[in-house]
Nucleic acid binder design. Structure first.
Length: 201
DNA sequence: TCGCAGATATTCT
DNA sequence: GAATATCTGCGAG
């Protein structure tokens, strides 16, 4: 499998968010491979995006969003949850894609173990995904383009018709002011399963 | 199905 | 020193 390189990430955030759908997120722990298909992602821009950490100003926490693409940005919220983001755009331009959900593929048992034995909905939320793959702040700022601890591989080819796009408002989370911001991409699990059965296109 | 508690890093005053 | 945050789990209805 081919690991996605910096030229994939150093493009407009919305394009990267769209293209990440169907890719395979791989986490290596010891010598075990945990992987899953990315089925939901959300773009966070630097400007005009009130929901983005980078919309206000550069701080020690969000500075990684201003760096080169293909880097991991992990942060901690609500006193108990980690969020996994991938930095996009070339060095100097802020942008990141929040990975919200994956569809587990390899070593699912290991993920369930890390989710305290909860075998249902293993990684269908941003914080659950981090738990299942043991993503913590120690992965913050590491390079996603080399096969060290975590990376992204070419996965399934998802037809555009199966990729949904919508506003972040009213779908699942808190009210959003930028109503035209269609920054959220996802694929229905039914369609995803169909793609998995058919194999790479 | 819905509403709220939970517990801390980071930022703001 | 105080408020807020890219959410999840659980308990009530």
């Amino acid at each position: 499998m081919e690991i996605l390189q910096p030229d994939f990430y150093e493009r407009p955030t919305l394009v990267v968010a769209h293209d990440l759908i169907g890719k395979s997120l791989v986490r290596r722990i010891e010598d075990i491979r945990l992987s899953g298909i990315i089925c939901e992602a959300e773009a966070y821009l630097g400007n005009n995006d009130s929901a983005s950490h980078a919309s206000r100003k550069k701080t020690p926490r969000n500075s990684v969003m201003f760096g080169p693409g293909g880097v991991v940005y992990v942060y901690f919220v609500y006193g108990m949850h980690f969020m996994f983001n991938i930095v996009t755009e070339p060095d100097g331009i802020a942008g990141a894609v929040l990975i919200r959900a994956i569809y587990p593929q390899e070593n699912i048992q290991e993920m369930i173990k890390r989710r305290k034995g909860n075998a249902k909905n293993i990684a269908d939320g941003p914080a659950k995904l981090c738990q299942a793959l043991d993503i913590t702040k120690k992965l913050n700022r590491i390079n996603l383009t080399e096969p060290t601890e975590i990376w992204v591989e070419e996965g399934l080819k998802i037809p555009d018709a199966f990729i949904n796009r919508g506003p972040r408002v009213g779908i699942q989370y808190a009210a959003e002011k930028d109503q035209q911001a269609l920054y959220r991409f996802w694929v229905e699990s039914d369609n995803l399963q169909k793609m998995i059965l058919e194999g790479p296109a």
